Amino acid sequence: MAAGGDHGSPDSYRSPLASRYASPEMCFVFSDRYKFRTWRQLWLWLAEAEQTLGLPITDEQIQEMKSNLENIDFKMAAEEEKRLRHDVMAHVHTFGHCCPKAAGIIHLGATSCYVGDNTDLIILRNALDLLLPKLARVISRLADFAKERASLPTLGFTHFQPAQLTTVGKRCCLWIQDLCMDLQNLKRVRDDLRFRGVKGTTGTQASFLQLFEGDDHKVEQLDKMVTEKAGFKRAFIITGQTYTRKVDIEVLSVLASLGASVHKICTDIRLLANLKEMEEPFEKQQIGSSAMPYKRNPMRSERCCSLARHLMTLVMDPLQTASVQWFERTLDDSANRRICLAEAFLTADTILNTLQNISEGLVVYPKVIERRIRQELPFMATENIIMAMVKAGGSRQDCHEKIRVLSQQAASVVKQEGGDNDLIERIQVDAYFSPIHSQLDHLLDPSSFTGRASQQVQRFLEEEVYPLLKPYESVMKVKAELCL
């Protein structure tokens, strides 16, 4: 049975990233139509530049190519590739079939990587351009969430054990800070992308030097003109047959890092959902379990974690691919890159769409948070109580021993009897502590235990987050809708 299948058929496997999760716009960027249309555009740009620099290419040939950029006979191309065992030459023939007058000058002087690699770089750039505003929107939604809850005390956790208090907004800023680093890295790697350009079979530009009869300047002009037509500021000066596969490492490393950030955020949300302090959106008709109707599973956060793990592992592909590119190139890269580049971007696209949807509907339960604080705060307040007693004339050592005994009794009630923490009640009825009984409410005010959390939130948002989001103001209103 021949390899390949009808990918629109229910009898043929289709990647869930495309069929179930990723956005239509990201799927289109990695589609065959987008790819092969870009090949034709690159052939047109090459012909236009070659004509401008004096090669015998007519206006009629150029116009014929322009008129057929979208006229792609995919069936013919597939048949040609089956016959020739070469995808680029299959599309040269297919393009030439609908451009008979231009057929002889299509791909003039070029090698397969002229269309293959340059198209990949265009796709990487455009895919990054799709991700950047999506990530900015996630940051914006979380920034709104953090600002609104900047002063809401909550129990902090280290080692997932109760620690000092923080605020809900401050905790959210930990998430935002990681995503801001990801946004900066995505922008950097996007701006650092260079075009492969017009380089020939081993990167020496020998074929173009021959076409222009040894004119170095025209060869350099050709490279520059096509690079500018493709919208790049610069091209690699040095290439082998391909652009260095280190570029793929750079791009997928940034995406993998984004995956790590999203995994951490969504894990926190899942843990908070278990504590009943916070939940992701839950639709009115949504079913959490087929057997347990009360369940409210954090399905979206779980999906993000599941896909983020996949995204983090994909960076190993370009690392290994770059390491086995012998001399000017081997074909070890080809099949692998067809999979890992598309999957990385479709996965990143999915987790950003999902995280935006989550961040637009996060639900906080202040009463649950308050109750958990009441359970733990008495123990945390013991040092403040000791200091207040010393100020009232008591002995630190005597007070410490009193607190120690009462704390152990209260802990026994919590752990052995399943009761509430009654340390404060014990202190309130103990005559030894009568000098500070009137101060206990103040000493137990949760806001006095959150330090500068709310001020940190305000400063972080104003100095770091809002300036970073400013270039994306025009796209901030787009909502994230999930079908599944």
Rank of each mutant, 00 (worst) to 15 (best):
R337M: 05
T267K: 02
A2D: 02
Q375N: 04
G8T: 11
R171K: 12
M89Q: 13
K415Y: 08
E79F: 14
W45D: 08
N68K: 10
T347W: 14
A411T: 12
R371T: 14
A78S: 11
R404V: 02
K66Y: 14
P435Y: 15
K75A: 06
Y472I: 15
N118A: 13
C27A: 04
E60I: 08
L423K: 11
P298W: 13
K147I: 02
S306D: 03
H107K: 01
F379Q: 03
V262L: 01
E213I: 11
D445A: 14
I386R: 08
T201C: 13
K233F: 04
S323Q: 12
S140M: 05
L319S: 07
F232H: 03
L341M: 01
E148S: 04
K233H: 01
S334C: 01
D117M: 04
L377P: 02
L142P: 04
M380T: 06
F28K: 09
T267S: 12
R372D: 04
F157A: 06
E80P: 09
E250F: 12
N421K: 11
P281S: 12
E250L: 13
G231I: 12
L484T: 13
M387A: 10
V414R: 11
Q356P: 07
I351T: 06
E70L: 15
R196A: 05
C99R: 01
T321F: 11
L362Q: 00
L131K: 08
K66W: 15
S23W: 08
L311S: 11
K233W: 00
T330W: 01
A410W: 14
F460R: 03
M299R: 11
G361A: 14
A22E: 10
D445V: 09
P366I: 15
F36D: 13
V88R: 10
N336R: 03
K82H: 10
T313N: 07
A291K: 10
K470G: 07
R396M: 10
I106W: 02
Y114M: 13
L341D: 06
Y114Q: 00
V88K: 02
D445G: 03
L406D: 12
D317E: 14
S447H: 12
K479H: 09
L84R: 11
A146T: 10
K134L: 13
S306V: 11
F379T: 09
T202S: 03
K101G: 04
N71I: 08
L222V: 04
H107V: 03
L469C: 03
F95K: 04
Q221G: 13
T119C: 07
E25F: 13
L183D: 03
I424N: 09
G197T: 00
I369V: 09
T321G: 04
V88I: 00
K218G: 03
I122V: 03
A49C: 07
G419P: 00
E50S: 07
E417R: 13
V457W: 15
M389S: 13
V315M: 06
R337S: 04
H159E: 00
G393E: 09
L121P: 05
Y243S: 07
V189A: 09
P153N: 04
S151C: 02
T354K: 05
P378W: 10
D182S: 08
Q356L: 08
I238R: 08
P153S: 04
Y365H: 10
N185G: 09
I358M: 14
G8P: 10
T354A: 12
G169M: 02
T119R: 05
G240A: 02
L423G: 10
D248A: 12
I351C: 07
P153L: 06
H437A: 09
I386D: 11
I57W: 10
D144S: 06
S301E: 02
P24M: 12
S447I: 10
A78W: 00
T52N: 01
K284L: 09
R194Q: 14
L222F: 02
C113T: 00
S323V: 02
V168I: 06
V457P: 07
S207L: 04
K470A: 11
A136D: 00
P467F: 00
V88D: 00
K479Y: 14
F28V: 10
H97F: 03
L108S: 08
V247K: 11
T382G: 06
